[in-house]
């Protein structure tokens, strides 16, 4: 394409103006994302012990991380947790969104808000509240089981903690996901339903054949966020650890393990390697997921 000097000048101006607008973001991006990432990577190439100095050993921390039962155990837990949690969360929020989309009573509006509210509650506060509710002595669960003469299970001890945490996270996030799906449903052209009804489709068929395919992008977005969030699981286990009777250990999730490695044991180099390794795990998992759903294109466009 031939370009005149005037066009080239216009191009330059557009480039300059465009960069000016994204400059603040670029700065923040460089300072708070790129720099820490590079710094974590740099740090992770050194080892440091209480009785040794800092030693340059580029692979040591990574070999250690990927053979460290604490890290691998944590990764196995968050991956397993995602595999169970995300489908459950997804089905619950999708089902509620479909119901709320179909009924438009005042009660439905109220219900929508109530289900969404937990999202506005900080995860720390939510976890502390659930800690109270789970308490076998003070919580309603203990009283409920007590009525029939049974001992309530403690939902945070080693054998129940999976379900106990799943309940908390679902409570916290299902409403948010539900709202996103609901918003997507509301954006569908209602004439599509009319046409389907004329063709003899019932409500269930409309929901499954028309609504569901049209909100797949919303579902995909949620799935990716849920996956990233769950792999980085930190706040709830960290708050509930002290009252979990040993059910939640310092290496319960990779993020928790990195935190204790850095701040209880002063091993910032190894903690950096753990953070970086976790980042790689997240990236790989998300990529595998996007590859499996073959929707990379539409999300990344």
């Amino acid at each position: 394409m031939p370009t005149s000097p005037a066009q080239r000048a216009a191009n330059r101006r557009r480039t300059l103006t465009g960069w000016m607008f994204i400059l603040p973001f670029t700065l923040v991006f460089l300072v708070f994302l790129v720099a820490p990432l590079l710094y974590a990577f740099y740090n992770s190439l050194f080892t440091k012990g209480l009785a040794t100095g800092t030693v340059f050993a580029p692979l040591d921390n990574y070999i250690k991380a990927f053979t460290d039962p604490s890290f691998l155990g944590g990764v196995a837990f968050v991956v397993g947790f995602s595999l169970v949690l995300i489908p459950v969360q997804m089905i619950i929020s999708l089902a509620i969104a479909l119901v709320l989309d179909a009924v438009t009573t005042r009660f439905a509006r109220f219900a929508r808000l109530m289900i969404f509210l937990p999202y506005a509650i900080p995860a720390v506060i939510g976890a502390i509240m659930w800690g109270f509710l789970y308490s076998p002595t003070f919580g309603p669960l203990g009283q409920l089981f007590g009525l029939v003469g049974l001992k309530a299970p403690f939902l945070l001890d080693a054998s129940h903690v999976f379900g106990g945490l799943m309940n908390i996270v679902t409570w916290q996030w299902a409403g948010y996901y539900m709202i996103i799906i609901y918003a997507a449903l509301q954006g569908i052209d209602p004439t599509l339903y009319e046409a389907a009804r004329i063709d003899g489709a019932n409500a269930r068929q409309i929901a499954l054949r028309i609504k569901l395919p049209l909100v797949t992008n919303a579902l995909l977005l949620i799935l990716v966020f849920a996956l990233i969030g769950t792999l980085q699981f930190f706040t709830e286990p960290s708050v509930l650890r002290t009252i979990s009777n040993g059910g939640i250990t310092q290496d319960f999730t990779p993020n928790l393990y990195a935190y204790f490695t850095a701040f209880s044991y002063a091993q910032f180099n190894y903690a950096s390697a753990l953070s970086f390794a976790l980042g790689v795990v997240v990236f790989v998992c998300v990529y595998i997921f996007l590859f499996l759903t073959r929707k990379r294109g539409s999300f990344l466009s």
Partner: peptide, 21 residues
């Protein structure tokens, strides 16, 4: 035009720099 583009960018820069400063 060029000057205005510059001002637009500078405003953005000032916002960021102000926070950083």
């Amino acid at each position: 035009m060029k000057k205005r583009a510059l001002i637009a960018g500078l405003t953005a820069l000032v916002m960021a720099a102000g926070l950083a400063a």
